[in-house]
Nucleic acid binder design. Structure first.
Length: 532
RNA sequence: GUCAGAGUAGCUCAGUUGGUUAGAGCAUCGGACUCAUAAGCCGAGGGUCGGGAGUUCAAGUCUCCCCUCUGACACCA
């Protein structure tokens, strides 16, 4: 392992969510995943900066606020509160919450704009064409249906507009981008998304407009206050603003001094292009280093169907976490859905997965073993180590290199497979217990054998809880506490240095407290609630 | 329409460079046990591997055609 300074730092972002409405389950999915990544990096002893936040400008926000009869800022504040409250419910431990309406953000945007302007990559041009107000975009003639109606918003005709906009010279960066994708094959993941982007860029890049007229809610273009900076140019820079420490003056140099470049932008597949094409081009124009990786995850379906207001089959993340708890939601999304692929949410399956994996397999293996420890060993934990077991021991053989494998998988964002590997160890615990039947050994007075069995199981459960702690911090904390560790994975009250990780992530390297307290279920089986 | 990917047990998925009776977890059913959250363990049923044709001694795995689904196709938070 390389111990250079760079390898001890890790910065990552979720998208800055648009505050058009309260958070939906897709945002929760992204944020839960990002939180698991952040927690796993911290567990390995790295300094982590985990950024989330909100994008708050634009005409849609302005309109929504008008409908609510409040100032846009008031509307944004309300929505921001609901985001923060959901993240709290889900045990999301973010380090920065970046808002594009933050006062410091405008200074960063202006400075960045100036760099790109100086570079000559921004120019004023006339844009004319059919404009759909509902889409807030220009349409090609061929995209429109009869009488210049927008195909999406058939009730309103598109309007002919002839307006001046500022454009960013994206076309200048085609070659640079292609070289980036070539020399950094992992820059865009998963590979299927990467291919899409490659394909798209190969077709040739067109400059895109970065300003709008007739838009109040946003920052003015520094060189022309009749124009307002439009969407992405503003929003993406929220990642940079987020890097400022509270006491920092809002300058690019200050923002970029410590955490730049970002190691991971975790996003939904819908906004891949902005992060994988526009964003690196903008950064290149400003002469800044590029992020390490952009990962576009898949979407959620409900019972196999696309979620949407029209079908009325959306999942309310608040309701979900209120009914089932943070760990349950976190675990299902991360274990049951492969990141990068679309995944389905089905409530029956949700219950089944959680009851099996967390209650029957993980929780019960601890519970039954602590029960035996009390009955057969007066709750005195055997003080053994890995050296007391042969290499072919059914649990040690699995646990030996489990930590290393999980590091590899999690660093590749393969959390689902990682969970499966960990569960395999715990399932093996239950089989091992039944195969060796301590209750029979007890009748035969074989105390030493019992102790060897019980320690092996307890250590396997401990290791599993440790490796799962980025995903199910509440449950892992309960398990650790029942094993006599006064830890809490939801605070900083657990060891988190590189050396700690090397010990705790291995099987049989850690002494369990001598005397253990009574057991209590760490995850209660869920009932399928009978709602419509 | 063009391009890309996918279609394997009821569900979620694994299936290496083609090679013995196609696997796992969950669900269902049966059995033996008791330390445990009626959990766990053992066992069973269940698949013409989307359809068709071809190459081959041999194809889920290669080739071609067809069907279905998903995504991208220029500014969709």
């Amino acid at each position: 392992m390389n111990n250079s300074a760079n390898n001890h730092k890790f910065s990552l972002t979720t998208p800055l969510y648009y505050v058009n409405g309260v958070p939906h389950v897709g945002s929760a999915y992204t944020t839960i995943t990002a939180d698991a990544v952040a927690r796993f990096q911290r567990l390995q002893g790295k300094s982590v900066l985990f950024i989330t936040g909100t994008d708050e400008h634009g005409q849609k926000i302005q309109r929504t606020a008008t409908e609510e009869n409040v100032e846009p800022q008031i509307h944004c504040d309300r929505i921001v509160d609901s985001f923060k409250s959901l993240w709290d419910k889900l045990n999301i431990k973010y380090d920065r919450f970046s808002r594009t309406t933050a006062p410091k953000h405008q200074a960063i945007v202006n400075e960045f704009f100036d760099r790109v302007w100086q570079k000559g990559d921004i120019y004023l041009d006339r844009q004319q064409g059919w404009y759909c107000v509902s889409c807030e975009e220009f349409k090609e003639e061929r995209e429109l249906i009869e009488d210049h109606h927008c195909a999406i918003h058939t009730n309103k005709p598109a309007e002919w507009r002839d307006e001046e906009n500022y454009f960013f010279r994206l076309s200048q960066y085609q070659q640079e981008l292609e070289e980036l994708y070539q020399s950094n094959p992992d820059f865009i993941q998963p590979a299927s998304r990467r291919n899409e982007v490659l394909n798209f860029v190969k077709q040739g890049l067109k400059d895109f407009s970065i300003s709008r007229v007739n838009l109040e809610w946003g920052f003015p273009i520094p060189v022309d206050d009749k124009h307002t900076i439009y969407v992405w140019f503003d929003a993406l820079l929220g990642y940079v603003t987020a890097l400022l420490d509270p006491e920092d003056e809002p300058t690019l140099d200050n923002a970029l001094s410590k955490w730049w470049p970002i190691n991971l932008h975790l996003i939904g597949k819908d906004i891949l292009r902005f992060h994988a094409v526009y964003w690196p081009a903008m950064l290149a124009s400003a002469g800044l280093p590029l992020p390490t990786k952009v990962f576009g995850h898949g979407f959620l379906t409900k019972d196999g169907l696309k979620m949407g207001k029209t079908l009325g089959n959306t999942i309310d993340p608040f309701d979900l976490v209120d009914r089932y708890g943070a760990d349950a939601v976190r675990y299902y999304f991360i274990k049951e859905i492969e990141l990068g692929k679309d995944g389905d949410f089905n409530e029956t399956r949700f219950i089944e997965v959680l009851n099996n994996d967390l209650a029957n397999v993980l929780g019960n293996s601890l519970n039954r073993t602590l029960g035996m420890l009390k009955k057969y060993c007066q709750s005195n934990a055997p003080q053994l180590t890995s050296a007391d077991y042969g290499g072919d021991h059914p649990l040690k053989s699995i646990g030996m290199d489990l930590g290393d494998r999980i590091v590899q998988m999690n660093n590749n964002l393969q959390f689902s497979q990682g969970c499966e590997e960990i569960l395999n160890l715990v399932r093996s615990c239950n089989k091992y217990i039944d195969d060796s039947a301590p209750w029979t050994l007890f009748k035969e007075g074989k105390q030493a054998e019992i102790e060897q069995i019980l320690y092996a199981v307890l250590e396997s459960v401990r290791l599993s809880a440790y490796l799962l702690s980025p995903i199910i911090p509440d449950i892992s904390t309960k398990i650790y506490q029942q094993l006599g560790f006064d830890w809490n994975f939801n605070t900083d009250r657990y060891p988190q240095t590189v050396d700690d990780f090397l010990i705790h992530s291995q099987w049989g390297k850690l002494a369990i407290k001598q005397t253990l307290d009574k057991a209590s279920p760490v995850f209660s089986r869920l009932e399928l609630s009978s709602e419509a």
